[in-house]
């Protein structure tokens, strides 16, 4: 590499190395789409109801909240952190906002959305402060807040249940209505996903999320406000979980304390299956959303195919393992190829 080549080495080798890397990462999103197509195709052949209007709508609705959480989670994972508390935040917000609405029907939807996001953001703030300013390992912190928030939720709920009849129809309409045949929920998710994707790709502060995950030490030396960005990632994840909680309430109407219990696993799986590296720095919110769609579709397909529904969790876990293993093997292959090119270039 560092030889005394008098002519600049041909850039061709470098460019093809880049194309190779590009290809590998695109391949992730393409292979997700391919997996979806195969899955949907096979299931539809086995049971034509799967592709009925209602079937598709159900899948989209079910994906929406998971994908929303996955978008927030990918911002956190990109910075080489993790937020395991999102599931319990959804539960807490769904219950408290339900409580808030059923207490007084005149309260508007906007205020509920704001309340939900605020509660979520507050949880995110606590996580973010502990991780970024107190430098406590993210896994431990969010595992801790997962249980604290869940405990608070159970304490507030005290075994009660929020019923759809107690909620204003406007909110339930948000959860189940549609515009031009497209349900609101996926619409909201897609808009947020696009905005996040655009921000992360095209703005300097967005790129800094990737930079931090790619190398925290280098980020610090480059003068990137690491703590502020990590805090922002947690705030975002918390706020989106808060919004997710409100949407959960809107979609299901009937809510007990343990909404979205255990979803943290599902969300992390969606993100990782979607190609966001758990070691940070790599991936996109589009991939994460596709990951969420795939997991949800698998769940629906299992039901349609009359497979024991208890398989779903096992399949989710297996898929997560498959995704990280494939990523790793590919990364090793690419590294090997790049290394060879380096030698040839000398």
């Amino acid at each position: 590499m560092s030889t005394v080549t008098t002519t600049p080495p041909a850039p061709a080798a470098g460019r093809s190395a880049r194309n190779l890397v590009d290809m590998v990462f695109r391949a992730r999103e393409l292979s997700l789409v391919a997996a979806l197509v195969v899955l949907v195709g096979v299931t539809a052949v086995a049971n034509s109801n799967f592709l009925s209007g209602q079937g598709v709508k159900d899948i989209l609705l079910n994906t929406s909240i998971l994908a929303l959480l996955a978008v927030g989670q990918s911002a956190v994972v990109m910075t080489r952190n993790i937020d395991l508390s999102v599931g319990s935040v959804v539960g807490l917000v769904a219950f408290t906002t339900g409580d808030f609405l059923s207490a007084d029907h005149s309260r508007g939807i906007v205020s509920v959305v704001i309340l939900g996001i605020a509660i979520g953001a507050a949880c995110g703030l606590i996580n973010g402060l502990l991780v970024s300013f107190c430098r406590v390992p993210a896994l431990v912190v969010t595992l801790g807040t997962l249980y604290v928030i869940q405990g608070v939720d159970y304490y507030l709920a005290h075994g009660r249940q929020i019923n759809a009849v107690d909620l204003p129809p406007g909110l339930l309409d948000l959860g189940n209505g549609s515009v031009l045949g497209v349900p609101y929920l996926p619409l909201i998710t897609v808009l947020i996903m696009l905005a996040m994707g655009f921000y992360l790709r095209s703005y300097p502060s967005g790129r800094e999320f990737y930079a931090i995950g790619s190398s925290p030490e280098a980020a610090l030396l480059a003068g990137i406000p690491v703590r502020r960005r990590v805090l922002a990632a947690y705030l975002l994840s918390g706020a989106l979980a808060g919004l997710g909680g409100v949407l959960w309430l809107a979609r299901f109407g009937t809510v007990v304390a343990d909404s979205a219990n255990g979803w943290e696993l599902l969300v992390v799986s969606a993100v990782v299956v979607g190609g966001v590296a758990i070691t940070g720095g790599v991936g996109s919110v589009y991939g994460a959303t596709l990951g969420a769609l795939l997991l949800t579709t698998i769940g629906s397909a299992l039901v349609v195919l009359r497979v024991n529904p208890f398989w779903q969790q096992a399949v989710t876990g297996a898929l997560l393992l498959l995704a990280i293993s494939v990523d790793r093997v590919l990364a090793l292959r690419v590294a090997r190829l790049l290394r060879r090119r380096n030698v040839r270039r000398v």
Partner: peptide, 24 residues
């Protein structure tokens, strides 16, 4: 002290990227 996952150009201009429309 480079960011391995980012492009060489992004590494050079991190924090001082040339901006186009909308601050992109």
């Amino acid at each position: 002290t480079l960011f391995p996952d980012l492009s060489v150009a992004e590494n050079i201009f991190m924090g001082r990227q040339p901006r186009g429309g909308l601050g992109r």
